[in-house]
């Protein structure tokens, strides 16, 4: 019977009618925790390696590959560590969250506003379904965006994963339930995201991802800053503001979401 009703790509074995078995055993939970810790360490280690090894002001092209590889490995470890931690209903939500991020990011990018606003859906999913779903949304957004419209987003996937984690943690600690705590959480997330994204902006794209931000990097470099220093300062000016606005928007949106939907998506 199953054979007769089969469609393309369907697996022909019986399976329980559940929304994905996300109940974890002690063993798999330990593996996932290990992968997450490793992922976070690889990303932090890559950042430190880049900052310590990059020649200040010199023509340094040797750090791009280790930087992107390290961030990619970190993001993959975080992906694998969180893939099985969320229910299928949350998995089904992520592609649309990704599409929202891409559409908003592209619109804001074209508008000339010196913000990104490309992580609103990541923050919302992190708030609704927890840090694991936030990580997946962040990484997949940058991958899908890079593979469809804008390749320059792919190296920032590790930063997007961290934004998802921090949004999830903020949600768990009820920081997105008051406007001012949401604003503070966004500001803090922006600082972390700014630090993580700056080496990519500097050594992969030369700080030239937008006319506004690029001009700022040029001015800061003309004051005697190294390329990494200029890109970091520029990121620390843009990212906290961007993420504070994004968290504030998520706080406003979250107020309109029915409690039933919030309860359905809650995970660890």
């Amino acid at each position: 019977m199953a054979e007769r009703n089969a469609t393309s790509g369907q697996r022909l074995s019986p399976m329980g009618e559940s929304l994905g078995n996300h109940e974890q055993t002690q063993h798999t939970r330990g593996t996932h925790t290990l992968l997450n810790v490793l992922g976070a360490l690889v990303i932090a280690g890559t950042y430190l390696f880049t900052v310590l090894s990059a020649g200040g002001g010199a023509e340094d092209m040797t750090v791009s590959l280790p930087l992107v590889s390290g961030y990619a490995v970190g993001a993959i470890l975080l992906l694998l560590g969180n893939l099985q931690r969320i229910p299928l209903s949350a998995v089904a939500l992520i592609p649309f969250a990704v599409a929202f991020n891409i559409v908003l990011g592209q619109i804001v990018g074209f508008s000339g506003i010196p913000l990104y606003l490309d992580s609103i859906a990541t923050i919302l999913v992190g708030y609704l379904a927890g840090p694991a779903a936030g990580v997946l949304t962040g990484v997949v957004t940058n991958l899908a965006w890079g593979l469809t419209i804008n390749p320059t987003t792919i190296p920032f996937a590790a930063g997007a994963a961290v934004i998802g984690v921090l949004a999830g943690i903020a949600g768990q600690h009820r920081l997105l339930e008051r406007w001012w705590t949401a604003l503070l959480a966004g500001f803090g997330t922006g600082i972390v995201a700014g630090f993580l994204g700056a080496p990519v902006a500097a050594f992969v794209f030369g700080g030239g991802q937008g006319v506004g931000t690029g001009s700022l990097v040029a001015v800061l470099q003309a004051t005697g800053q190294s390329l990494l220093g200029a890109a970091t300062l520029q990121s620390l000016l843009s990212d906290p503001l961007d993420k504070a606005i994004a968290f504030l928007l998520v706080w406003a949106v979250a107020k309109t979401i029915p409690q039933r939907v919030k309860n359905q998506l809650k995970t660890r």
Binding site: S13, L19, L88, S89, A92
Partner: peptide, 19 residues
Amino acid sequence: VLLEHEDRGKSLAQRRVEM
């Protein structure tokens, strides 16, 4: 999208997406 995520999840489970 938010309201139909549960149905989408059920549909994924029925399609044995994880097997």
